Amino acid sequence: MYIMHVTEFQKRGQTYAHNCFREEGGDPVQNVDIDQFVRADLPASIEAEGRLRKAVLDHIIHGSCGPPFRTDLPYWDPEKKGVLSFSITYCDDRGFVHLKRSSKNEATIKYQGKDVPINDLWVVSYNTALLLKYDNHIYLCAY
């Protein structure tokens, strides 16, 4: 078991911590094991009485995918003129985990004073229990 952390001090006086934990008992071996701990989707409005969706929209939205925003992301397919969805979590041949996401799962946020439609591809990976407990930006990676 290991626990590592690094603390950064960013602009505007914000403290930012990187924490790494390893679950006892070895690494997840299947996508369903990873899905139990890490998510990257817009939760349904009924999950945790709506608190989870609100927390994701408040703290876990990053980036902007597709025109007029970024199209240089690995899941953007210019030939299909759209973003790709992943119906299951999988690990590629380089060892990177790609979390289940759907470009059809949508919401609207305020961005630079305008209503902007978003989907799962804007969502940073997170752990449901930590997000609900701390109601703050907690980015989580699966390796």
Rank of each mutant, 00 (worst) to 15 (best):
residue 2 Y to D: 05
residue 3 I to H: 09
residue 4 M to F: 06
residue 4 M to T: 06
residue 6 V to F: 05
residue 7 T to H: 07
residue 7 T to Q: 07
residue 8 E to W: 07
residue 10 Q to A: 07
residue 13 G to A: 11
residue 14 Q to C: 10
residue 14 Q to R: 14
residue 17 A to L: 06
residue 18 H to A: 08
residue 18 H to T: 09
residue 19 N to V: 13
residue 19 N to M: 12
residue 21 F to R: 05
residue 22 R to M: 07
residue 28 P to N: 02
residue 30 Q to W: 06
residue 30 Q to E: 12
residue 34 I to F: 00
residue 35 D to M: 15
residue 38 V to C: 14
residue 40 A to V: 13
residue 40 A to D: 10
residue 43 P to D: 11
residue 47 E to F: 09
residue 47 E to K: 13
residue 48 A to N: 14
residue 49 E to F: 13
residue 50 G to W: 03
residue 52 L to F: 01
residue 54 K to I: 03
residue 54 K to F: 04
residue 56 V to I: 10
residue 56 V to E: 01
residue 58 D to V: 05
residue 58 D to Y: 04
residue 58 D to I: 04
residue 59 H to C: 11
residue 60 I to T: 10
residue 61 I to G: 09
residue 62 H to D: 12
residue 64 S to L: 04
residue 64 S to T: 06
residue 67 P to N: 01
residue 68 P to F: 01
residue 69 F to Y: 13
residue 72 D to Y: 04
residue 73 L to W: 00
residue 74 P to D: 04
residue 77 D to G: 05
residue 77 D to H: 09
residue 77 D to Q: 07
residue 82 G to R: 01
residue 82 G to S: 05
residue 82 G to M: 05
residue 84 L to R: 13
residue 88 I to Y: 11
residue 89 T to G: 01
residue 90 Y to V: 02
residue 90 Y to M: 04
residue 91 C to F: 02
residue 91 C to G: 02
residue 96 F to D: 08
residue 96 F to E: 08
residue 96 F to C: 06
residue 97 V to T: 00
residue 99 L to F: 07
residue 101 R to I: 15
residue 103 S to R: 15
residue 104 K to N: 15
residue 105 N to S: 15
residue 106 E to I: 15
residue 106 E to R: 15
residue 107 A to G: 08
residue 107 A to D: 08
residue 109 I to Y: 09
residue 113 G to Y: 01
residue 113 G to P: 09
residue 115 D to A: 11
residue 117 P to G: 03
residue 118 I to Y: 01
residue 119 N to A: 09
residue 120 D to N: 14
residue 120 D to W: 10
residue 120 D to I: 13
residue 123 V to T: 04
residue 123 V to A: 09
residue 124 V to G: 11
residue 126 Y to P: 03
residue 127 N to H: 12
residue 128 T to K: 13
residue 129 A to S: 11
residue 131 L to W: 04
residue 131 L to E: 03
residue 132 L to G: 06
residue 133 K to G: 04
residue 135 D to L: 03
residue 137 H to Y: 09
residue 138 I to Q: 05
residue 141 C to H: 09
residue 142 A to Q: 00
